[in-house]
Design a protein around this nucleic acid. Sequence first.
DNA 1: AAATAGCGGAGCGAATCGCTCCGCTATGAG
DNA 2: CTCATAGCGGAGCGATTCGCTCCGCTATTT
Lengths: 234, 234
Amino acid sequence: MTTRKNLTERNDRALLQAARDVLAEDGAHASVAAIAARAGLGIGSLYRRYRTKEELFQRLSVMSLDHWNEVAERGLAEPDPWAGLAGFVRGCVEFGQGSLGPIAGAIAVTPEMDAKARRGDELLDELVRRAHEAGVLRGDVTAVDISLLIEQLGRSPVVDQLRKQGRDDLLPAAAEARRRLIAIALDGLRPGHGPLPGSPPGEELFTGRWSSPRDAGPVAAEEDAPGHGGDAGR
Amino acid sequence: MTTRKNLTERNDRALLQAARDVLAEDGAHASVAAIAARAGLGIGSLYRRYRTKEELFQRLSVMSLDHWNEVAERGLAEPDPWAGLAGFVRGCVEFGQGSLGPIAGAIAVTPEMDAKARRGDELLDELVRRAHEAGVLRGDVTAVDISLLIEQLGRSPVVDQLRKQGRDDLLPAAAEARRRLIAIALDGLRPGHGPLPGSPPGEELFTGRWSSPRDAGPVAAEEDAPGHGGDAGR
DNA sequence: AAATAGCGGAGCGAATCGCTCCGCTATGAG
DNA sequence: CTCATAGCGGAGCGATTCGCTCCGCTATTT
């Protein structure tokens, strides 16, 4: 039975999922029309739920952060430190963390986003600390390395493009191929390999990209973006 | 001394490099105006060299394929099979192979592109075969796995975004962080790890995305794109 | 000094953007 | 059953941006 309430709820989920997909495929270029169409809805239906495009994207960022934190907590609940960390990475990458990259700096960071991002950092730090302590993670890998790895693998050019071209028949194969790449990267995180090149990346690489929403000119506008620089949204 | 000839040559190089950068940052959304601006040229200067935007992108694809093949040949010239393969992967990833992904299926594939792509496949096959034979590459990794890995790592969300935001001060750190990820992935390619999940990816994942330039509708138009499906451009 | 190759960018029509508005359908209350 | 209305699809608004043309101008070459 499709009551009105059920329907709107399902539509809302479809909308958010569609937004994620379209954002992954079209990047910053993603249009509300495309999002609504993919969700199988009209534009009007989208705009009754979200007053602006930015509001939709902010909601999506919160969703993404919630997922990050949930998966991280599930990883911490896992007794085996490596299984916990690996499960976290797999969960984030397959979920598509990093699809929201294109809108970093294009939407305002709400206090809610900021807080959840901070919480996410703490959880990941703990996951990494535990793994280091147990000696199941190569010693010179930092939490920022892991964050960047998740962001790097968290978008699949193959999957995104196949979906855009309507080649849905190849999607399962693409997903499987992607899982192989994740497995390769995870194996590279185990101990027993030579030292990593360069020095550990600083936090500012992951932060700082979400600050100063509007003035992202070709030449750095001012000095150093006013406060609050959090890696919200991911 | 800046003769006229020197100048136009330098401008041409600047144009192609700018096109690569803008394409990496803006994806399919990349505009000719943005490309010209980044090259420090006017739009008029771009259009004297290339009659259309598509022609510029095709030229860029050829450049990219040439680079792929050169690096592969250098890898084959290396006596150590692992050093050859690893050098190839590093060379491709750091060059930014994969930045052209967004235009796959959006521009026509010229016979030149097709031929060079085929040549590239052969070279990679040989690199992988050599490495397998020497036992320096985990056994269940295929050439397609490597191709997809290069495509996956061949774009750097962090670098692209920092550049778009004009945070050029952070670029060196971002490049270094990226090199660490490459090292992790390469270590994951060595033998001595458990078997990879799923079955090896088929060729069609890497091909097929460049065929049927114009009719990429949401529902697969016809059966299977007319002939020539090559992974040109990359 | 005259000729001209090569440049920058204003501006064209077309396309697309975010968003508003409204006619319509299908639901749930009485 | 009737009827009020919640929720829908999408035409269309003004603004913006697109690829590209065209032309006045500068700087080099003869």
